[in-house]
Structures are given as structure tokens and as C-alpha cells.
Write a protein that binds this DNA or RNA. Structure first.
Lengths: 216, 216
DNA sequence: CGATGAATCGAACGTACAATTAAAACATAC
DNA sequence: GTATGTTTTAATTGTACGTTCGATTCATCG
């Protein structure tokens, strides 16, 4: 893992970010107080409101730090696949959607559970933040799906985009409990293998003929 | 909708349950206080700790009231499909998993968002409750998947079970925001149509040949 | 009617929270 | 080495929370 123990070195701002990320991942955004964060980070309580302006702004900073590179990588992959002669395949769209998240999860210990929290916390502020980060990504992937599955209606594509998102969100959100729930059977440490499983499942679902409009 | 406005009739206990369900669905479990609930229900604050013993026990009661019938119906459907000559098809397993939830969502306004909150709240008490309700269901569906997809390894089945759960959880959890996110395109009111789309997607994913072990 | 238990009520308990303040400590440049 | 701007500190503010309490109302039955 790349992260240092926050008790050593690193400036206050980074210590707060790292500790907040870890605690948000472990306990959720709503149930982690500034007192928890500052105590664990070994900094003063007021440091949060000094470096960031508010608790909400800290949450936004924690999320942006990890989400922005992931979404940039997603777009990058998508453009690469779209430039290829056969256009993007459903497998490639799924890969561009899933792999950057899984790779970030492998690189930074807390990213997967933290994103899981983000995807699943009812907090209204988080919902807005989520929209900010994911609305443009959703639109971009809808467009790519249209190229990968010509003839499928926009409505159907929209649904399947959300089904794909559901498969990934669930695995992300359950990344901490999944090994326990399955008695160690489901192991997320082999990122490539898990991604491959997901891509296979999702691509097959994307390719399935529509249940309501059989024709084209 | 079957529910009455809590301000009229119904005894205190039911008024609390109905109001709590509505507020939990709207604002989440953690962000809904007993004061919010009792104010909206028009009952005294102390009534919650009188009728239920604690806030946690109220949460458990709210969830059990809706989850128990859904899970009973799931098992019922599964047994019906398993009794059929061809054994259960992947479509039938998906149907038994998905349809009871969607039907409960159509019957009671707040069930879908409330279940979405339940599936996605980091609260440790909720996690335990979730385990209680879903662990046996998961085991039962894993068994059914084994019959529907003979030759697929237990490991692969476990993953695909979670992929299926992910598709449904995501739609459930996003039931309130999905119409807004998609500019009204994705509409959950036609329960049968949404269920059919999900079943098609999931069954295709379940049937896909394994990415890691091609043979069998 | 009068008594007994369930149900409701207003009020308070102690705890935890985000945010703010003014002073202290620190670093940097002159 | 003193002045200036940045960072850290301890203490406090006001608000909200779950839970508990004793008193009061209500329904039921002897």
C-alpha cells in the first residue's frame, strides 16, 4: 500500500485527508465525526475548518482526490476503444467502466470501501457530489453503449447502463464484507480476475436481446 | 397505495412504524431522529421507547415488517420452480429473486427506497440485521443456481449471485433518483416491465461462459 | 362506582456534534 | 532580529440527539 501511517510525517492537510478517507471507508460518512478524524490524525479539531472550510468541503475533497483520476482513466480507455476499427465492443465498454475503479481499489487500500459508501449514502450533499462526478460519466458511457449495441433503443441502453453500474457498485460497496459473507470464497485481492468475471457477466447482459422489443 | 395517512386513525404503534418507514425511506436511517418520527406521526417522543424498547429495535421492526413477507415469497417461488420437470432455469431463479421485491415495492410506496437504504447504510447494527435477513436467502439461492447451472463451479456461482444482487440492489436503491437522473426516461412504475428487463439482463449474465474456466 | 394496568404526556438527563474564537506557536523574509 | 503571515492550539457556543423519569389520562373489569 502506498499510504503512510498518518501519525508520521505528511502535513496536516494530507493527514486529515488520509485519515478521513480511512474512517469514511470504515464507518461511513455520516457516522464519522470531525472529532474521530482529528483524534486519529493527531491534529487539532479546528484544523479541519481551517484547511477545508467545512465538514462538507472535506468530504468533497476526500472524494474528488480519488474519483477524478478514475473518471479520467475511464474516458481515456473509452476513447481508445472507440478509435478501434470495430468500434467498442460491449466487453470494452464494461472494461472501461469497471477496470479503472478496481485498479484504484488495488492501489489505495480504502478507495473501494470509500466509493462504496459514496455510492450508497443517503446524505443529500453526497448525492449532489455524486451527481457532479457521475452524471457526465453516465452520459459518456450511454453514448459508447449506443455505438457498441447499435439498434438497441435509448431506453433499453439506459436501463442496462444502470444494471452494469449496479453490478460494480455492489461489489465495491461490499468489498469489505464480501469475503466474510462468503466464508472467504469471494476474494477481491485478484483484481484482474474479479474484473474479468464482472466484464463477462455484464457484457452478456448487455448483449441479451431486449425482453420488450424483440426487433430492431 | 394501501397506507393511510398516519395522522388519522391507526394505533400509536402502527403510526410510528408507518411514519418511520416513510422517513427512513426519504432521509435514511441515520439521519432520521426519533423526534422527526414522533413529530410527523403526531405521537409523544417517549412512545417509541415505550412500544419498542430502543431506536434500534424500532429500525429492526420497520425492516422485518416488509422483508419477511418478501423473503417468504422468494422461497415459495423458488420451490415452485424447482419442482418443475426441467428444474429451475436461470430466468426463474432471477425471477424468484427479483419479482417479490418489485411487487412489494409496488404495493407499499416506501418499501423500495427503504430497502435501498437498508442495503446501503454502513450502520453496524443494520449490517447485522441485513445478515440475519439475507444470509439464509443467499444460501438458498446459491443452491438453486447450482441446479439451474450445473457444471458451473461454486466459486463462479457465488460471484454471479452477487452480481445478480447488485443489479437489483442498485435499481432498488436508486428508485427515487433514477427517474430524475434519466430525465424521466427510466420509470419504475411499470413493475412488470422493469422486472422483465432485469431478469433478461441477469439471466444472460448467469448463462455466460466462465471467463476463467472455459471447460466443464 | 372504584380499582388496576396500559398508554400517553411534558420535562429533563447526559452526551455528542460542527463550528467559532482569540491567543499562541511557527515559519519566512527583510 | 524583528516583523509579517501562516498554522496550530485550547476553550467555548449553541444545537440536537436517545433515553429515562414521574405524573397523568384512559380503558377495562370486578
Amino acid at each position: 500500500m502506498e499510504q503512510l501511517h498518518p501519525a508520521f510525517k505528511a502535513d496536516t492537510k494530507t493527514r486529515i485527508l488520509d485519515t478521513a478517507e480511512r474512517l469514511f471507508a470504515a464507518d461511513g460518512f455520516d457516522r464519522t465525526s470531525l472529532r474521530d478524524i482529528t483524534r486519529d490524525a493527531g491534529v487539532n479539531l479546528a484544523a479541519v475548518n481551517y484547511h477545508f472550510q467545512s465538514r462538507d468541503a472535506l468530504v468533497a475533497a476526500v472524494i474528488s482526490r480519488r474519483m477524478s483520476p478514475v473518471n479520467a482513466r475511464r474516458i481515456e480507455l473509452l476513447e481508445k476503444f472507440e478509435a478501434q476499427p470495430g468500434g467498442p465492443t460491449p466487453e470494452q465498454v464494461a472494461e472501461a467502466f469497471i477496470v479503472p475503479v478496481m485498479e484504484a481499489g488495488a492501489q489505495f487500500e480504502n478507495v473501494r470501501p470509500m466509493m462504496g459508501r459514496m455510492l450508497s449514502t443517503p446524505n443529500e450533499f453526497l448525492k449532489r457530489l455524486f451527481e457532479t462526478h457521475l452524471a457526465p460519466i453516465g452520459a459518456r458511457f450511454l453514448e459508447a453503449l449506443g455505438k457498441a449495441l447499435p439498434g438497441v433503443s435509448q431506453l433499453e441502453l439506459m436501463w442496462r447502463l444502470h444494471f452494469m453500474a449496479g453490478v460494480m457498485s455492489h461489489i465495491i460497496a461490499f468489498s469489505r464484507v464480501l469475503p466474510m459473507m462468503t466464508n472467504g470464497t469471494c476474494d477481491l485481492s485478484d483484481t484482474k480476475a474479479v474484473s474479468a468475471r464482472m466484464i463477462t457477466f455484464v457484457a452478456a447482459g448487455l448483449r441479451a436481446s431486449s425482453p420488450l422489443q424483440e426487433s430492431v
